[in-house]
């Protein structure tokens, strides 16, 4: 998206299109995706500097809640009954877990609490204050958890939206049962929906991760 700006600039001033190119080096695709959309200010610094209105917030009467997320102590202002998912996504910026059904039937919001998957969309944050919460962002440092690696090798993702829930669920299965049979995989994974319906590859990826873990 730095690059896109180059194009925008190129269109604006055709006379001197090369300045930007030398200033910003080529960023490989994945890097762009991983760092740039994270923060819109990067894409558009003007957004912050030109902001004229002050933050409008009600007087803070919310209790402070401490959480252990991905190995770090964090504290947030939130009503104790707020679903964990909203705290993760909107307060902590961890958007790996997804909102999808909102009633704990689709599994897109799955995170680990003390190693067990819970649907974060209907788990009050107050229930997990003592637990160790792990989201997809904390599952591995560089996307190299055996399940993530198998996921790439078996080409599981399509639209990608359910993947965090699928992977967290699969990681839980393999942590407890290193060599599940097909029926056990079905029984465990049927809890997480994939509308691109890449189920066949999900099953194969779990079998692959299990085999590689032997």
């Amino acid at each position: 998206m730095h690059e896109r700006k180059i194009w925008r600039r190129t269109q604006e001033s055709n006379s001197n299109p090369t300045n930007w190119d030398t200033a910003i080096p080529f960023i490989p695709f994945i890097t762009v995706l991983t760092i740039d959309p994270e923060n819109l200010a990067l894409r558009n610094p003007a957004l912050i500097s030109s902001r004229k209105h002050p933050p409008i917030r009600p007087k803070n009467e919310m209790p402070e809640i401490s959480l252990n997320v991905n190995g770090k102590k964090m504290s947030v202002d939130a009503d104790p009954s707020t679903p964990l998912l909203w705290v993760l996504r909107e307060k902590l910026g961890l958007t790996g877990p997804k909102y999808s059904c909102g009633i704990a039937v689709c599994g897109a919001c799955m995170v680990h609490v003390d190693g067990k998957t819970v649907p974060s969309c209907n788990t009050p944050v107050s229930e997990v204050m003592d637990g160790e919460i792990t989201t997809i962002e904390g599952l591995s440092e560089n996307g190299d958890h055996p399940v993530q690696k198998a996921w790439i090798e078996e080409q599981v993702p399509q639209c990608g939206y359910c993947q965090s829930g699928q992977i967290m669920r699969a990681a839980e299965l393999l942590a407890n049962k290193p060599n599940p049979n097909r029926q056990e995989i079905f029984d465990h994974m049927k809890r997480v929906l994939c509308r691109c319906a890449t189920y066949y590859r999900i099953v194969k990826a779990i079998e692959k991760a299990a085999k590689d873990g032997e």
Binding site: F29, I30, L33, T34, P37, E38, L94, T95, G96, P97, K98, T135, I136, E137, S140, G143, Q148, W151, I152, E153, Q155, V156, P157, G160, Y161, Q163, S164, I167
Partner: peptide, 16 residues
């Protein structure tokens, strides 16, 4: 060829 957006999608970094 492996998906170019695969890593972003299995690490939760792809933004919607």
């Amino acid at each position: 060829m492996s998906r170019v957006d695969g890593v972003a999608k299995v690490t939760g970094r792809a933004k919607y």
